[in-house]
Amino acid sequence: MKPAPFIRHVPKTLDEALKILAQVAPEDGRVLAGGQSLVPIMAFRLAKPAHLVDINEVENLDKIGNDGKILRIGARVRHGAFHTSVVDNPLGALLTFVARHIAHYPIRMRGTFCGSLAHADPASEWCLTAATLDATMVAKSTRGERAIKAVDYFEGIMSTALAEDELLAEVHLPLLAAEAKFGFNEFSRRAGDFAMSASLVTYTIKNGKIAGAHVGVGGAEPSPRRIAEAEAALNGQAPGDEAFRAAAEAAASVIEPLEDHQTTGEYRRDLVRAVVRRALENSQQ
């Protein structure tokens, strides 16, 4: 189908974008970033925004910054920017590995990192990444700027702490330790589909034992999150099958799985057990 009529605004600066957004947000005005989620929803007429604030011509939004501690990802950094490593740190390799699982190549040429976080699909790989790595979301509006931690940001299926008039201007990801290990795995029925469950893990090894484990699960609950019980099952243990299976079991037993007409909760729980174990196994390669 064809999208319903709307008025398009094309700001050139961030200030201008925030002003327009403040004006049109109460009349169902929205940001248009890569359009790779919004335009399909408009084509189905599930969304009929009256105004779109197109941020594709706003200067300086496509920047990736790095101060040695934090990677800063601007509002128009597209998925494809991560096809090669953006930073000389294990985080760069992690983002490249994860990016390949998002949709398909042509969609990755347009879709943006911040757009994924604003859209907040439960199965979004970037949302899982932000939750697992304790990202900070920087929201800007004419009212000012605020930093939102990942644990406070995700509020359920396609729902976040962003207010209508706020633009997600940047996402901050902490760099990993130089010797950090990471692993990722997801299950979907066809290449490029949204995952039915996904897991991202990071940790370091101290004296032969796992330390500082982060275990994230996405696609299984309304929002992605770190699973403390799985992390506790890893920390202090030698990396290997026994610890990995214990962590996978811990994750599977605590999640409250989404159900839909194709997938029962128990099936999703089984998938969580599998993706967490596989992500941990990948981390050793």
Binding site: G35, V39, P40, H104, P106, I107, M109, R110
Partner: peptide, 27 residues
């Protein structure tokens, strides 16, 4: 499909293959 699934509409814009059903002409 008109919603990004099939790829029949793929064209190259400024050197990048994209779904032309998910871009507006004005862009």
């Amino acid at each position: 499909c008109e919603h990004g699934i099939c790829g029949a509409c793929t064209v190259i814009v400024d050197g990048e293959p994209v779904r032309s059903c998910l871009m507006f002409a004005v862009q």
